[in-house]
Amino acid sequence: MVTLDQIRAFVAVAEELHFGRAAARLRMTQPPLSRHIQKLERAVGVTLLERDNRRVVLTDAGRGFLEDARRMLSLVDTAGDRARRIAGGAAGTVRLGFTAVSAISMLGALLRRLSEELPDIDVLLHERVTDGQVEGLLRGELDLGLARPPFDVATLDSRVVFREALCAAVPEGHPLARLGRPLTPGDFAGLPVIGYHPGQARYFHELTVRFLANAHPRIEQQVHQILTAVLLVAAGRGVALVPASARSLGIEGIAFCDLVRGGGDPLHEGAAGEPVELHVIWDRNSTNPALARVLELLPDREA
């Protein structure tokens, strides 16, 4: 069996081409150094060094073995350093779940910051709706998620990392788009509205129901994702309430309108009422050291 001590002994002799100098470099005497070389040659099965009383010369096999031996020692040194960096959270892997709209609002900025400040942490991306992210965290498939509430607070920790306005997406040329003012709940009375599934898209379902509670619109579709709602609006199937970041989806044939709850109170970032929140969620029992370092770089919008 080849040992690291034998490899280090061989590299020292091969570089010094002198047993005395190699022994001094390794802070050992010549007899054990010679035994390391002999055991290495027996293990490899070839002569690596030609030596007599006057000189030490590498054989062709020895020159080839020297290249590999140097790589092995370098790998051992860097492996130890990497292990220490992983234990300290400066290196490693974080598996991040996200939704399409969360990607628009902050994923790009987050990935750029991680690349700049924690370049040795690999971020593996998984596009999943919120329920899929929660399941992934509980099964150990994800380390972190960018998702919408509510969450199981018994096992998951969360905090707000982004807030934005709720707005209306309407087809271009729609009467609501021509009003030229922020829309009130009453403006949606009797109109076809694309709603959200109460189970699979609970957060936006509740935001929509709460805003339109007294408007009595016609809910004609219930979708799971913001992107689907916006595409249906573009197809003329109704209007929808969406987060302001949906404006960046770049889908043609849509106008976006601001909202007011009533009494002129706008639905804007930080307003009392129902701003749209994006949370970062993680398993509070996670043992991934890199997760803690990533969380340190995330914004905190709880206040």
Rank of each mutant, 00 (worst) to 15 (best):
Q6I: 09
G45N: 00
R178F: 13
G80V: 13
L138D: 08
L295D: 14
A61R: 09
A9F: 06
G263L: 11
L124M: 10
L249Y: 03
A244K: 06
R63H: 10
V161H: 00
V239P: 01
D5F: 13
L4H: 02
R85C: 01
P217D: 13
R82A: 05
A189F: 08
P289V: 12
E67S: 02
Q222N: 01
V294R: 09
L295E: 14
I254Q: 00
E67K: 01
L114R: 03
E41R: 00
E277L: 11
A271V: 03
T130N: 02
G89Y: 11
D60V: 12
A22L: 02
G132C: 08
I281M: 06
D283R: 09
V223K: 04
A61E: 05
I7P: 12
C257A: 13
A103G: 12
V129F: 08
P31N: 13
V260N: 03
D68C: 04
P243M: 06
F151Y: 10
V280S: 05
A9S: 12
E206W: 00
D157R: 05
A69F: 09
L259D: 01
V123Y: 11
R42Q: 08
P243T: 02
L124V: 14
S105M: 08
V94M: 03
L66M: 01
T47K: 10
H224M: 00
G45V: 02
N53E: 15
T99G: 15
